[in-house]
């Protein structure tokens, strides 16, 4: 028989002492399916885990002890631990989603670096007609371009030396 646990709304959590199981309803908007799978997977060595989707906005997780002699307190502790794990998995899923582009770019660079220097064939196939990299701050300039003598000053210097270039 399903009974609510004191202090927790009955529509969120119900305990069945005879079956040594506890059913938790979670909001699908807060906890993505990948987080639900992740949290459930961690508990399958301790209890039987059953996932369900009673309506499009909610998941229902039923945790049953593998042995049928669990107390209400043990079930409460179990479902509390599961809820914490679910929150942790949801948070990690969100971090992964937000940083997916950065992770993919880093991985691609690492793999490209691990492939070693390009071969002569690769260089031969390389398209040098591509547009050069954007450099709005003028950083990608050679030292000579940036600090070398200007062309006018160089001509004057050449004349001073009697037209002899060094």
């Amino acid at each position: 028989m399903l009974t609510p646990i004191e202090g927790i709304p009955g529509d969120l959590l119900q305990v069945d002492l005879e079956a040594a199981s506890v059913a938790l309803t979670v909001d699908a908007a807060l906890y993505p399916r990948s987080a639900l799978y992740g949290a459930a997977y961690i508990f399958i060595d301790r209890c039987f885990v059953l996932l369900d989707k009673p309506d499009p906005d909610h998941f229902r997780v039923t945790l049953s002890w593998k042995t049928q002699d669990a107390s209400a307190e043990a079930l409460r502790a179990l479902v509390g631990e599961f809820a914490n794990e679910l929150l942790s998995c949801a948070w990690r899923a969100q971090i992964a989603e937000e940083n997916r582009a950065a992770m993919e770019a880093t991985t691609a660079r690492v793999l490209a670096g691990a492939m070693g220097p390009p071969s002569l064939d690769d260089l031969e196939k390389f398209d040098f007609t591509d547009a050069p990299l954007e450099d709005p701050l003028g950083i990608a300039m050679s030292w000579e371009e940036k600090y070398g003598k200007k062309k006018g000053a160089q001509d004057e210097e050449t004349q001073d030396k009697g037209g002899v270039q060094e």
Partner: peptide
């Protein structure tokens, strides 16, 4: 009945593991 419960539970866990991975 107890054996049925155990088989059903383990089967559920096994299919959950396959679904998750």
């Amino acid at each position: 009945r107890d054996r049925e419960r155990r088989i059903a539970g383990q089967l559920g866990n096994y299919s959950l593991g396959l679904s998750a991975t």
